[in-house]
Design a protein around this nucleic acid. Structure first.
Lengths: 167, 167
DNA sequence: TATTGTTATACTCTATAACTATA
DNA sequence: TATAGTTATAGAGTATAACAATA
């Protein structure tokens, strides 16, 4: 049961943010896109993290494997930039993947590494992707097909605000 | 009515997920709601953090001030729970706000504190809210009014997946 | 000179356990 | 016995600076 705030029943169509205020327990926060985004992202990631625990992967590791699988031989620097991860922080990330023999670094010239999946990495990614797809179906269960497409479209427009890392 | 299951309940979702694949530089990641959510949230928060820097507030501090202002006297524990912040992590957060004389803790019984805004806190929040509103207008500039309402609605449904912190 | 990968470091956010004092 | 607040601590994630080797 969602909170019967029946006190003030005025239509209150003011165009400002304040209009949607005083509704829930969070006050104006309820009307803020950034706040709603953060809560949704946290909730979904929590589900995703639990989902991936079965294959001992965290979201960032999953995204790296997915990217390498889609772009075999991609340079370390390109991969890091594409995912919005600092190259310095990327080093221990792929170091762990390589330690587990899921990926391989192959020098392409004296200073660059191409990144590749190992058979073991491909096998694990296949399992992880199956888990992800069930997770994805679960969290989007309340959304229609068109609604989902619109959501992704809107999110990508939002991500394009100035200050977003380029990729 | 929510779910548009046209055919059967078979894992068709996975197939449609793959369909939107191979499009961009990120491979399948482009079709994943969680990934799109994370990128959008990061981009918007980056803009928000820069926006609030002018009043030396971080997003969490802004949300605490907003909550206290909407619910004067709210208990520390209730506030932390409402914002999805661990009570242990809430202590240094409000300690800093109190050190800056923006909020005040008033004991209501021997073990509970009611939280209140100081005049200084209200004045700063007013400035912060003006900054926020400009930020909000900026990041939602590409969205129509109805689109914005739909987005918030969808995000709140997504945040309701099992595993989300209660509030 | 600019770029790739690397190390070291620091700061924020988050999570847990354990303690105290009160109810 | 349970709750509110606190302390301490550890783990992620992220950011910057500096460096070596190479282009």
């Amino acid at each position: 049961m969602p909170r019967t705030t029946r006190k003030t029943d005025r239509p209150d169509d003011a165009a400002s943010l304040e209009a949607a205020t005083n509704a829930g327990a969070l006050g104006p926060l309820h009307a803020y896109v950034g706040y709603a985004l953060r809560r949704a992202q946290l909730a979904i990631f929590q589900d995703f993290i639990r989902t991936l625990a079965e294959v001992d992967l965290r979201p960032a590791q999953f995204s790296v494997l997915t990217l390498i699988d889609a772009h075999p031989g991609i340079l370390q620097s390109r991969a890091a930039a594409a995912l919005g991860i600092q190259k310095a922080n990327f080093v221990p990330l792929i170091g762990e993947l390589e330690r587990r023999e899921l990926t391989r670094r192959v020098p392409v010239d004296g200073r660059s590494n191409g990144m590749h999946m190992t058979p073991k990495g491909r096998a694990l990614l296949k399992r992880a992707r199956a888990l992800h797809d069930r997770h994805h179906a679960r969290v989007t269960a309340s959304l229609g097909d068109a609604e989902l497409r619109r959501l992704i479209d809107v999110l990508e427009r939002l991500a394009a605000v100035d200050g977003a890392p380029a990729h």
